[in-house]
Design a protein around this nucleic acid. Structure first.
Lengths: 349, 349
DNA sequence: TTGTAAGCGTTATCAA
DNA sequence: TTGATAACGCTTACAA
């Protein structure tokens, strides 16, 4: 493997000079610079990343730890983080905790499982001496197992830390529920059954709070008995659809698109027509919503904006010593996407 | 930051001994080992990855370059590679070329675009001194721009290199088309219109070849005029659906699920019933196929098996000097997934 | 403008 | 079983 010394020898200069040229320092003669750059070009020489990082005591690398790359929310966030970091001249390195592979659907309820995967990953990240860490959660919640004494600047995306040491970038679930409530009301629906996510869950609770605020502002009474709690899974939507229809509601709002698909399954079997006999809305705007028939009306997660903001926050923290965002938690608003699954039932005229 | 020297001083031993303990060498006294390990534990010391990799001249790291992490085929491959590498004690580092961000849907037709993104990435990978590289393509094809003189052991997943220097792990498109042909024939369809992908494309051509083999084996004549070429996009399925229906075919086979969704769109508008009046099949088994109504019959890409085999091949090459797979190209067979979109039209009795 | 030499944190070699 | 020392490839302070 070719080194600075080789380049120096080939050019009859010292290794120090070669290094100065590579790092764009000004104290080098024009003629020498050109000669050395040409030889570097010809030989295809690449500075050894380990040696230079060690010497410089900085890697210009940002670590990304994701809870699970399979989670549909994760890839868009990660891709955006990577793009911004690259733009700003930082490398990224990705660690995947693969929580679903290890514990299927149970892991986001119990921090113990997370901890057992997280601690080694943080050690790894520490060993790599990354400049900063962005932690991308797979489910929005308050993380209690993030260590108090972790030294590396860290930003948390899609979840929040219990102790407010780390800036976090979150879905604005409350306004998300509010916007959905307003939308359904605007189409004339006042009898709305809600298929929520698991109880005591950040997404679930906040979305419901926003939804109730919308009803309340419109002077529409909220009926708790029309709200059912599912497991976020499609099957769960299917199982709860009967109850939701049994309330006599004109619209069913599912707190994610997967459960909405489950309701679709049930409604198809029943022979009713979605968007006409019954209205259905979802949440998340996952890609699958485009493939449902009729196209699902849903509220889209601002994943790319979360990724972008996380990366911006991270790099700002790195480049401006001591800087922190104004509030340690930043909420990013969702964006409504209208399909054909919600009927307009307002009285005409 | 705490170093071996600090640990050595705290334990009254030499740095060399600490290093021996960390690396599990046997030439250390039991009592010393315990004492040192305890101090390492207490201090939370992590060996500097750069320093150690530099000295060892090996990073036990495998680089993964993906053409685009957004491509739905990529994540499952990557996740599986990461899991296997971790299992075998290797780190992975992921570089995302983001070809879609840079050039939308045009990049896989023109190697020039790829080259401009690939060369810097390969330099980066070289600088990091990874032990091996797995290149994950976003579209199956024969890559011409992979350099002749690239030194790092490389495996190509989901595409092949023009020069057969690199082992590649590919979709078995030919058998994929064959299995689909057999399936449709088994349901009594002999008048089948095909909506293929772009012409002169590896997936498109091989799938069609396999399909024709199935017809031929069954003694059914293949009608080239019933085959149309699309762009792989949903819109393209929609636009070609009219022509496909115009052939009088009883079944339409689309060479990916997205185009099948486009055909669904058209058929829904026409009022025909899918899986009854007209049969539709896809290819890929992307997640969306589960959300289509009726559930699409399709042939699933063996993405996890491609990832696994790529990683196995890589690590085998690294650990057994000079080893290469038997053939430089390995094809992995797809798996049919039956939905409700294909009617059984065999004569009863 | 260029060269010399020390040092980053680790590990391998060899001597004790 | 342990310690001293050199070396990995690069950068940087300082000398020339």
């Amino acid at each position: 493997m070719i080194t600075v010394k080789d380049i120096a020898r080939l050019c009859n200069v010292s290794p120090g000079t070669v290094s100065n040229i590579i790092n764009g320092r000004p104290n080098v003669g024009e003629e020498t610079r050109e000669r050395v750059l040409r030889v570097i070009q010809e030989t295809g020489y690449q500075p050894n990343y380990f040696a230079s990082s060690m010497r410089k005591q900085s890697s210009r690398t940002i670590g990304i730890i994701v809870e699970d790359l399979k989670q549909f929310t994760t890839t868009p966030i990660v891709v955006t983080i990577m793009a911004y970091c690259e733009e700003m001249g930082y490398r990224t390195i990705l660690l995947n905790l693969r929580m679903y592979d290890r514990w299927q659907d149970t892991w986001f309820q119990d921090e113990k499982m997370l901890e057992s995967a997280l601690i080694p990953a943080l050690k790894e990240i520490t060993a790599i001496r990354v400049d900063g860490l962005i932690y991308v959660a797979g489910h929005g919640r308050t993380l209690s197992c993030f260590p108090e004494d972790f030294k590396i600047p860290t930003v948390i995306a899609y979840a929040a830390s219990e102790n407010d040491r780390y800036p976090s970038i979150l879905i604005d679930d409350e306004n998300g529920g509010y916007d959905m409530g307003k939308y359904l009301l605007s189409k004339g629906h006042t009898k709305i059954s809600v298929i929520a996510g698991v109880p005591d869950n950040m997404h679930s609770d906040d979305r419901l709070a926003g939804f109730r605020r919308a009803l309340s502002e419109a002077g529409v009474v909220y009926h708790p008995e029309w709200t059912f709690h599912g497991t976020w899974l499609r099957e769960s939507g299917y199982l709860l659809a009967e109850k939701a229809l049994g309330t006599g509601a004109t619209a069913i709002w599912c707190m994610n698109d997967q459960m909405a698909a489950g309701v679709y399954d049930y409604v198809y079997e029943s022979g009713m027509v979605i968007g006409k006999d019954i209205s259905i809305a979802g949440f998340d705007n996952m890609e699958n919503a485009e493939y449902m028939y009729p196209r699902l009306t849903t509220n889209g997660l601002p994943l790319r904006r979360i990724g972008r903001r996380s990366a911006e926050t991270m790099i700002h923290m790195l480049e401006e010593e001591g800087w922190r965002p104004e509030g340690m938690r930043t909420w990013i608003r969702c964006q409504m996407t209208e399909g054909n699954s919600v009927a307009d039932i307002r009285e005409k005229g």
